[in-house]
Design a protein around this nucleic acid. Structure first.
Length: 334
DNA sequence: AATAGGCCCAACCGCTCTAGT
DNA sequence: TACTAGAGCGGTTGGGCCTAT
């Protein structure tokens, strides 16, 4: 199977931007004789380039059927739709957009569409509404708000930056674990794992437990053996995440010792990030000619409930209102 | 006007796949 | 069946351009 020698072994070949003269030589040669063997082409065409570079220049730039200019709205929608089905199979996507190259589509995705989807609250990898990550991203804010809200007494003073960082890290870890568990559990909703995560957060905030200990207690190593997250990830898993938010209530008491650890899950080796699991699954199936199963982008999505909840919280005073209800923030455990 | 930072995209790199022997 | 050369793919980079300060 060996690696292609490509340009690696060739010394003295020119690299970098193509000149007009080089373009002309390449176009004229291909027009007259076709490209034939890309490896032999440079010599025959009188170019001091490697064949690979010539192929790239031709297919991405010089080909006469290449469409130039901005992507239309229709093209944009088609790319997003195809990406939801095919993932980063740029060449496959390009075959559905006449005149566009895989490189062009890839660049457009990375520079425009990726951000656009994020801005719309859609995960560009899974094409699902973002819930977990926005929650994680919101944690520092949550803690800051909490710090400000718990009057200006000793509790606030105790929350120095290092402690905050530790809390955020620990909470992220807990939330990730809960999230992975939720996504890999096809059974009925887990009992409010979100509250368990918060309990862990508060337990750490007392300073009595460090992260290593937390990791051990939660058997984080077992997380390396996660079951495969297939494209048919159970919607009930998302429902579990919804349950996390349902767990935020005024009446919830907190125990500093209950960490919400349920041990690991057996099955898969590899990634612990469920957000990239589908993509990884594709890659693991093996490169180029592989067709990935369609992701259920258009399937009913129970997690929308959670998304709405996050949106509500992100509106003015949302988090503060929530925290006001969480009387436990004033508890001695802080 | 100068400069820093961000954006964009052409081109490169390294890997896998496929076809030929 | 095993091996190799060549082709193709996806990820990444670097430098030019644009914009904000």
């Amino acid at each position: 199977m060996g690696r292609s020698p490509s340009c690696d072994g060739e010394t003295g070949v020119k690299k970098g931007p193509w000149t007009i003269e080089e373009d002309k030589l390449l176009v004229e040669y291909i027009k007259e004789k076709g490209h034939g063997s890309w490896r032999r082409l440079p010599k025959l065409a009188g170019l001091n380039r490697c064949g690979k570079s010539c192929r790239l220049r031709w297919t991405n730039y010089l080909r006469p059927d290449i469409k130039r200019g901005r992507f239309t709205d229709d093209e944009e929608k088609l790319i997003i739709h195809l990406h939801s089905l095919l993932g980063n199979k740029w060449s496959s996507i390009a075959t559905k957009l006449p005149g566009r190259t895989d490189n062009e589509i890839k660049n457009y995705w990375n520079t425009h569409l990726h951000k656009k989807l994020l801005g719309m609250g859609i995960d560009p990898v899974t094409h699902r509404p973002r819930t977990d990550l926005s929650l994680l991203a919101g944690l520092p804010g949550l803690l800051a708000v909490a710090g400000n809200f718990v009057d200006s007494g000793a509790a606030t003073a105790a929350w120095n930056m290092n402690a905050l960082k530790l809390q955020v890290d620990a909470a992220k870890f807990q939330l990730l674990q809960g999230l992975v568990r939720a996504l890999t559990t096809a059974a009925a909703p887990a009992p409010a794992p979100g509250m368990d995560n918060l309990r862990a957060l508060l337990a750490v905030s007392t300073g009595g437990i460090d992260q290593n200990m937390l990791l051990q207690q939660c058997q984080w190593n077992d997380m390396n053996n996660l079951p495969a997250l297939t494209s048919s990830a159970p919607t009930s898993g998302m429902h579990n995440i919804s349950g996390m938010f349902d767990g935020f209530s005024a009446s919830d008491g907190l125990s500093s010792t209950e960490l919400g650890c349920h041990g690991g899950v057996s099955g898969r080796n590899g990634t612990v990030d469920p957000m990239v699991a589908d993509d990884q699954e594709c890659k693991n199936n093996g490169g180029g000619g592989v067709s990935c199963e369609e992701t259920p982008a258009s399937s009913p999505f129970d997690g929308l409930q959670s998304l709405n909840l996050i949106d509500d919280l992100n509106t003015d005073g949302g988090w503060k209102d929530l925290l006001e209800q969480m009387s436990w923030l004033n508890s001695s455990e802080l």
